[in-house]
Design a protein around this nucleic acid. Structure first.
Lengths: 243, 243
DNA sequence: CGACGCATTGATTGGATTCAACTAAGGTGG
DNA sequence: CCACCTTAGTTGAATCCAATCAATGCGTCG
């Protein structure tokens, strides 16, 4: 079941019936592999297909003329890469696979069709977009108004929380296949400064991190330090339940 | 017609028929006024009503324990304040009126009803959310990887573009009812540094700004300097048109 | 092994902050 | 209608966090 990630995610927002699950399965049945460090889709492309991460880590990023890169999201299984390209016509940024990725290629006309006929699915997808927005706002606050130490800690808390939600955390240990360079591009810091910051986090006994494996040794202390409040990730089915 | 802003905005995404326009009119008929500097909705609230800006400027912001504030969006007529609160249950940040604002109080259950029955409206609202996301990503890039000078220039370009879209720019002059403190909280700078930056922009003959009126004296030079590419705001009806 | 990518460490520089004082503009009340 | 007060904007000097530049260590893989 390669696409279960999406179905699991949308199930949080809506009760999907068998027909809807089947439609989603069909929609995401064309799964291809992208090698690490390869773009899944690049700035300027006018995608015929939408892309959905089924397995692996990817990053949404924008390059500036001066060579600087800003990562605006880490994409985990169940996340769409380019829903907005539907609107903008062409990509205004790129998506790169950080690990080898299994990516579902979704026909945009099929999705368009589906969203004209299945309002529950449309709402579920919309809510996914709202959640993405909440995460973006959290990043903006983090990068804008927290110093490097708390900033990196906050990002690690978010990753820990999101990975927990999709069942990829075991005993507070998780794969973090992200270089310090990439952490820097996500937090608006340099790799050098990320390095020093991680060392402080290690020295303070908050985390262990080596060989792409992160262990959060003291979750509550890390959250406290980072002022992390995971509410913005805690989506509920409030509206759906209340009707 | 106090709510025309929303209808005008959604019309970009979808062809609204008379019934849908009437439903939206009904939905947004309860318009109240919020004084400048007052919160329209505050962090922690569990809103029964959604809020839609009909007139005036507002800002989405988050306070940190250390007293720092990050503004994550400027809200203009037609923008929703708290669609995501539907999901999160409670607000994880606040919205403040920067000017006296006319705000439509929208019944969330009515909206919920509407989106179960009118798929075109749901899609249009969804696309509005996707646009919000595109703006957020642009801010993240701007604040993360541009220096103060280009950063402030980029924000001014975006405001100029958005105000143009809703017909509030005349001869490259527009109301900018935002203090330097607020510009700082939006760009992740201090008011003092914003001040110095604005002075450089004035000295370079790019803008005039006084008494809450901004005049962009050389639009293309400002855009070039800011590396501003407005594509991310250029929403089209690509999908809707292609079916 | 050799080469490459990634992580680490040190020395120096610089953009933005901080702190503080001061000016200008607007609003209010006596 | 002016005195007073508040808010926003301006300027200068000192400080600091993170960037930059550069060198080195280390593990992995062809």
């Amino acid at each position: 079941m390669p696409t279960s990630a999406l179905i699991r995610k949308l199930s949080i927002f809506a009760d999907l019936n068998d027909e809807e699950v089947a439609l989603l399965d069909d929609l995401t049945s064309d799964v291809r592999t992208t090698a690490a460090k390869r773009d899944i889709i690049s700035e300027g492309e006018r995608p015929e297909w939408l892309h959905l991460i089924c397995e692996g880590w990817a990053a949404r990023y924008k390059m500036l003329p001066n060579g600087a890169r800003q990562i605006t999201a880490f994409l985990l299984p169940g996340d769409f890469c380019d829903l907005h390209a539907t609107l903008l016509g062409k990509m205004d940024h790129s998506i790169v696979a950080l690990t080898p990725c299994k990516v579902a290629w979704v026909s945009s006309s099929k999705l368009d069709q589906l969203t004209t006929t299945h309002v529950d699915l449309t709402r579920a997808l919309w809510w996914g977009t709202l959640l993405d927005g909440a995460i973006l706002r959290a990043w903006l606050v983090n990068n804008g108004r927290r110093e490097a130490f708390e900033r990196v800690a906050h990002l690690l808390c978010e990753i820990h929380a999101r990975m927990t939600m999709i069942g990829l955390v075991d005993d507070d240990r998780l794969d973090l296949p992200v270089t310090q360079e990439e952490l820097g591009d996500a937090t608006g810091l340099t790799a050098v400064h990320v390095n020093r910051t991680l060392q402080r986090l290690r020295a303070d006994g908050l985390i262990e991190l080596s060989r792409r494996v992160l262990t959060v040794k003291d979750v509550s202390a890390l959250k406290r330090l980072a002022q992390f409040d995971g509410t913005y990730l805690q989506i509920t089915r409030r509206v759906a339940a209340s009707r």
